[in-house]
Amino acid sequence: MRISGLRIALFSGNYNMTVDGANRALNRLVEYLQRQGATVRVYSPTSDDPAFEPQGTLVSLPSIAIPTRAEYRFPLGLNARVRGDLEAFDPHIVHLSSPDLSARAAARWAQSHGIPILASVHTRFETYFRYYGIGFLEKPCEDWIRGLYRRCDALVTPSAGMVEVLREQGMNDDISLWERGVDRNIFSPDRRSLEWRRSLGIADEEVAIGFLGRLVMEKGLDAFADAIDQLAKRKIAHRVLVIGDGPARGWFAERLPDAVFAGFQGGTNLGRAVASLDVLFNPSVTETFGNVTLEAMACGVPVLAARATGSSSLVDDGVTGLMVEPGDAAGFADALARYIADPELRRAHGAAGEERSRAYSWDAINQAVADTYLRLIAARKGSAAPLA
Rank of each mutant, 00 (worst) to 15 (best):
I186Y: 08
F187S: 12
F187I: 10
S188A: 08
S188P: 03
P189E: 07
R191Q: 09
R191A: 15
R192V: 12
L194E: 15
W196N: 15
R198K: 15
S199C: 14
S199W: 08
V207M: 07
I209P: 09
L212N: 15
E218A: 12
L221F: 03
L221S: 08
L221C: 12
A225R: 11
A227Q: 14
I228E: 12
I228V: 14
D229P: 10
A232D: 15
K233D: 14
R234G: 15
I236V: 10
H238S: 13
R239E: 12
L241G: 13
L241E: 05
L241R: 14
V242L: 05
I243M: 05
G244H: 01
G244D: 09
D245Q: 07
D245W: 04
P247T: 07
A248M: 03
R249N: 14
W251V: 04
A253I: 15
A253P: 12
R255D: 13
L256Y: 06
P257T: 13
V260S: 03
F264L: 10
Q265G: 14
Q265E: 05
Q265V: 03
G266H: 05
G267P: 04
T268I: 10
T268C: 04
T268W: 07
N269R: 13
L270P: 03
L270M: 10
L270G: 01
A273E: 03
V274I: 13
A275G: 02
A275S: 02
L277Y: 02
L277H: 00
P283C: 02
S284G: 05
T293L: 09
A296E: 06
A296I: 00
M297G: 04
M297H: 06
A298W: 00
C299R: 00
G300S: 01
G300I: 00
G300A: 00
V301L: 02
V301Q: 04
V301W: 08
V303S: 01
L304R: 00
L304W: 03
A305V: 01
A308Y: 05
T309I: 09
G310W: 00
S312T: 08
S312R: 09
S313F: 05
